[in-house]
């Protein structure tokens, strides 16, 4: 029997005609209504499944996040214990320091008077490194007063005082210049903003020893910022021996992208 008379050929022929019909119909747009119905059904089903899958994914992501938080919590608890010990040691040292100061007739260090403030909003344009604070109306505020986050980490300084808000320029703004001192070596220099990315520690003489990881405090020399507020930590050195001064990049200690409650130093 010839192939064209077989059942297989007949089937193949029907399939080819069907395929050709569908291709032509689709190209001419005759299948648009049928496709529309399919898209409605398929789209609804797919979006339902996609949403369900996304919810499940979020659920497990939250679970994993909680698991991670538990681990982080353990680490923080350990850190708190260490810091509690350190704090007790420092309190004893402070007491001894005060006693010795009195014995030598040194001037007492004044406490930082902190005025609480809430961050209203950040500069939405991103052109400046400023934010607006909501402060109690009866608070006595001064221009250029330092602004810190709760643990005494430097955030910025007041650059404008309005009736119901206070403008704070962050330390990462290039217009801010802070006299800093390295905790370990006592090397002093000038900390300036680097366009919102990090800070630059400059004007450090070559006989001073600085290294990554060193903490920098405000030296209190210029008067704007009180002495002893933590600015940040040296992340890398960027100077060469041929340059006149040493330079370093400094990572701000305060999380400047996540500011909510701040304190104005009213010293």
């Amino acid at each position: 029997m010839r192939f064209i008379y077989t059942k297989t050929f007949r089937r193949l022929f029907v399939v080819l005609v069907l395929v050709a019909f569908i291709i032509v119909s689709d190209a001419k747009g005759y299948l648009s209504k049928a496709k529309g119905i399919f898209f409605e059904v398929y789209g609804a089903g797919t979006s339902f499944i996609s949403n369900s899958a996304a919810k499940t994914k979020n659920f497990f992501a939250t679970f994993l996040l909680i698991k991670g938080l538990s681990h982080e919590n353990d680490l923080l608890k350990q850190k708190v214990d260490e810091l509690a010990f350190e704090n007790a040691r420092l309190k004893a040292a402070k007491q001894e320091n005060q006693t010795l100061r009195r014995a030598l007739n040194f001037a007492e260090e004044t406490e930082l008077g902190l005025i609480p403030a809430v961050v209203k909003f950040l500069d939405p344009t991103g052109f400046t490194q400023t934010l607006m604070l909501d402060v109690a109306t009866d608070a006595e505020l001064k221009l250029n007063a330092a602004v810190v986050s709760q643990p005494g980490l430097l955030v910025g300084k007041i650059t404008n005082i309005y009736d119901n808000a206070v403008e704070v320029t962050l330390i990462t703004d290039p217009s801010i210049k802070i006299n800093g001192i390295v905790v370990d070596s006592g090397a002093s220099g000038l900390v300036t903003g680097e366009h919102g990315l990090s800070l630059r520690f400059d004007l450090i003489t070559h006989n001073e020893v600085i290294k990554p990881g060193d903490k920098i405090l405000t030296s209190g020399l210029a008067g704007d910022f009180p002495k002893g507020i933590l600015i940040g930590e040296i992340s890398s050195l960027s100077s060469s021996p041929s340059e006149l001064f040493q330079k370093a990049f400094v990572q701000p200690a305060a999380d400047l992208r996540n500011l909510k409650f701040l304190f104005i130093v009213a010293q």
């Binding site: 059904v41 398929y42 089903g45 797919t46 979006s47 339902f48 499944i49 996609s50 369900s52 899958a53 996304a54 994914k57």
Partner: peptide
Amino acid sequence: ALVLLMIQGGLSQAF
């Protein structure tokens, strides 16, 4: 097959 296609599409979107 249609349900399987939907599942495939949904999972593709989500993951």
